[in-house]
Design a binder for these strands. Structure first.
Length: 256
DNA sequence: ATGACTGACGATGTCAGA
């Protein structure tokens, strides 16, 4: 099965771009972030008529995540276990073809020293504990992680060390997961700079000049990583009219 | 240069994004 992650920055605003991408790329599973809609106003019919089952964890105006799957989903969980860190709709999980899929929209952090940056770090620590519960089996963690892991993952890194999204405190928390065996599947197979998934709207011609960040990721557990191949960034949607500021990342997961 | 651009909400502006 081919699994994709896509921060759409409002699904309703992005519907023409998203449906065109869905029809041309034809993924089996899609993890969406920043849908910015509740279930009642989610464009359900347009997606279901293309053959996808839906699991939606919506929120008005901000955040919101969803999973699309051609095969039925089992054990759908909206949010993180327990009460903590669930004030926003940032996580939805399901089991698809025996693979646990965890779709996250990690908090942005806004500004170093802010309450929101502290929240991002605390969120990552809490999430690490949640992931310990599932990482012994075949699982994918994917989504808008809002962290560029290395200097190869953003433009002009020498000017940005210590900014939100490329900060040592974020890297330490991400490394706790990768040190236990979560593999960045794109980086396993592709080296070097310039492979980005996000380009700011505010930088003039930022996409054409490739002034971007690689902050949307797909991580696999040790028992799944060898079944993953052909992970790539699909830049096409970012070049369309009225694009999201992010573009999809796709991976093929082979049968066990 | 502490801006720019885009979207939601619902208003003629504010908040958020990373």
């Amino acid at each position: 099965m081919r699994v994709a992650t896509f921060n759409v920055n409002s699904l309703r605003a992005r519907l023409p771009v998203f449906l065109h991408w869905l029809d041309t790329a034809g993924p089996d599973v899609v993890a969406l972030q920043e849908i910015k809609t509740v279930e009642e106003t989610f464009p359900r019919a347009e997606i279901e008529e293309r053959g996808y089952h839906l699991a939606i964890h919506g929120q008005k105006t901000y955040n919101g995540v969803a999973l699309l799957s051609r095969t039925p989903m089992e054990d759908v969980v909206k949010g993180l276990p327990g009460e903590a860190f669930n004030q926003d709709a940032r996580v939805i999980s399901a089991t698809i073809n025996g693979v646990r899929i965890v779709n996250t929209y990690v908090p942005n952090g806004t500004k170093i020293g802010s309450d929101k940056f502290a929240y991002k770090l605390a969120w990552l620590e809490h999430f690490d504990g949640v992931m310990r519960q599932i990482e012994s089996g075949p699982a994918l963690w994917l989504g808008d992680i809002n962290i560029a892991p290395t200097a190869d993952d953003l433009f002009e890194p020498e000017k940005k060390l210590g900014v939100v999204g490329y900060h040592p405190e974020e890297h330490v928390r991400l490394a706790r997961l990768t040190d236990r065996g979560w593999t960045d599947v794109f980086r396993r197979d592709t080296e070097g700079p310039g492979h980005y998934t996000f380009w700011e709207y505010m930088i003039p011609n930022g996409f054409k000049r490739n002034l971007g960040w690689r902050i949307d990721h797909i991580y696999a557990t040790p028992s799944l990583v060898d079944r993953c191949e052909n992970c790539y960034v699909d830049k096409d949607p970012r070049g369309m009219e009225r694009p999201s500021d992010h573009t999809p990342v796709v991976v093929t997961v082979n049968p066990a």
